[in-house]
Design a protein around this nucleic acid. Sequence first.
DNA 1: ACTATATGTATAGTAAACTATATATTTATA
DNA 2: TATAAATATATAGTTTACTATACATATAGT
Lengths: 74, 74
Amino acid sequence: MKLENNLRKYRFEHNEISQQDLANAVGVTRLTIHSIETGKFNPSTLLALKIAAYFNASLEEIFYLVDDEENDEK
Amino acid sequence: MKLENNLRKYRFEHNEISQQDLANAVGVTRLTIHSIETGKFNPSTLLALKIAAYFNASLEEIFYLVDDEENDEK
DNA sequence: ACTATATGTATAGTAAACTATATATTTATA
DNA sequence: TATAAATATATAGTTTACTATACATATAGT
C-alpha cells in the first residue's frame, strides 16, 4: 500500500490556487506542497486534513491508498 | 489547529483489538500505536488511512482537527 | 501466588517530513 | 523580447515520526 493524491488537480480545478498560496494557507513551505504533489513524501495527517479543509473536501477525496507491486504486504 | 483522535475508543468499541495486534495489522510497532493514542505524535497520512481502513471507517471518523489556544494561526 | 497478556514509560537510534536558501526552467503577459 | 509569476530541482539542516530494546506496572486467569 502506498499513498497517492490528486492535489494538483484540486489546485487547478477547484480553486486555481498556486503552490505558494496554498502553502501559506495551510502553514507550510511551497516546497512541501511541491513534494507532496510529486509524491516525494507522505504528509502528516495534520497537514493532509488542513489541505482537505482548505478545499472543503474530505481527506479521502484528495489522498488515497493504492496497492504497490513491490512492498506487497502491509 | 492540532490533531486529535479516538483511536483508543475504536480499538475497544469496534474490534476489541490490542495495541500489538493493531500494530501488526497496519505494519508498525506497538509503540507507534501507543504514541498516537497518547497524542505523542501525528501519524503519516499513509498510516492513518491504513488504520481507518482496518476499522472500515473514514479517516475523519478517527482523526480530526481541533483548535488550540496556543498556536492560533495556521 | 504464579503466569500470561496488555499497557505505560524511558533511552537511543534511524528515516523521513519539513524548512531555508538558491538557481534554473517554464509560461504568460506587457 | 523583456519581465514577472509559477514551478522544478538541488543541497543542507532541523524536527519529528517511527524502530529497537528494555523494564515496569496493571489486570485477569489458573
